[in-house]
């Protein structure tokens, strides 16, 4: 006994669905992906290396460095130094004189011996200012900001290698011929930079100085997260716009600069 539609339903249920073709296609696609992984350049799958474009990195912010001379503040950080203390004035203990040896004396009447003998000399006591003072132990190490001879040539902007902490730390001027030029450039930018903001942060602005000294391609390389800080930094560079032409000793046509603006409270 069979239902009228049974044959039809069984036939439809058994119909092939052509999955085999798509399986082959899927296998081929996976092989293709694996082959792509094998043959693709390695930098497709990893973060590209830091751009090796000749970019100078400067940092604004912090106190300005000394104008000339090799003595720069050593990072503005406290430095331990052995300081020779002045010799402390030690209190002079005054030793009372030893009692005189007894002498052979004639016996005196009782009323005479009862009388207290008068001291021959007055015995001085310990001076009041010497009481309770700690004994000194010689020279001590103290914390303090000091100037040390770093042996570097300052360029007046705190940009020397061992320069001001936080302000002159990241300067790659060893490849640049003319640090004076940078000093001028930074001075011009700093004048137009409104560093007094309500929040703190760091903005890196990137720009290009042409041979004629014109500043172009000003972009915020890394923002601080605050629009006001980013705009203030960008504005400082944009307003500067024109500086001295690049030094002739500098061989390239453009100088790429990454300038870090640090906003501190």
């Amino acid at each position: 006994m069979r239902e009228a539609a049974s044959e039809l339903l069984v036939e439809r249920a058994r119909e092939g669905d052509g999955l085999r073709r798509t399986l082959l296609g899927s296998s081929a696609a996976h092989l293709f992906v694996i082959a792509t992984l094998l043959l693709a350049p390695a930098d497709w799958f990893s973060r590209p290396a830091e751009e090796t474009l000749d970019v100078m990195t400067l940092r604004l912010g912090g106190p300005e460095g000394p104008g000339v001379g090799g003595r720069t503040a050593l990072g503005g950080r406290p430095v331990q130094e052995v300081v020779t203390l002045p010799e402390a004035r030690r209190p002079q203990w005054i030793q009372p004189p030893a009692p005189a040896p007894p002498r052979m004396v004639l016996p005196v009447p009782e009323e005479v011996t009862r009388r207290r003998p008068e001291p021959e000399t007055e015995v001085p006591t310990v001076p009041e200012e010497a009481r309770g003072r700690r004994l000194t132990t010689g020279p001590e190490e103290v914390l303090g900001s000091t100037m040390a001879d770093t042996g570097v040539q300052g360029i007046g902007i705190g940009l020397s290698g061992g320069g001001l902490g936080g302000s002159g730390g990241e300067v790659a001027i060893e490849d640049f011929c003319c640090p004076e030029y940078l000093a001028t450039m930074l001075d011009l930018i700093r004048r137009r930079w409104d560093r007094h903001q309500r929040v703190t942060g760091t903005v890196i602005v990137r720009f290009e100085i042409g041979r004629s000294g014109r500043i172009d391609a000003v972009t915020v390389d890394r923002g601080s997260g605050y629009l006001a800080l980013d705009l203030a930094a960008q504005r400082a560079v944009l307003l500067t716009r024109q500086i001295q032409p690049l030094p002739e000793r500098f061989g390239q046509d453009t100088l790429n600069v990454r300038l870090t603006f640090e906003y501190r409270p």
């Binding site: 669905d17 073709r21 798509t22 399986l23 296609g25 899927s26 296998s27 996976h30």
Partner: peptide
């Protein structure tokens, strides 16, 4: 890998 091949094949086939 086999599971991935199978699931992608089924997905593409069913979409079609």
């Amino acid at each position: 890998l086999l599971l991935s091949i199978l699931s992608w094949a089924i997905s593409v086939f069913k979409l079609w």
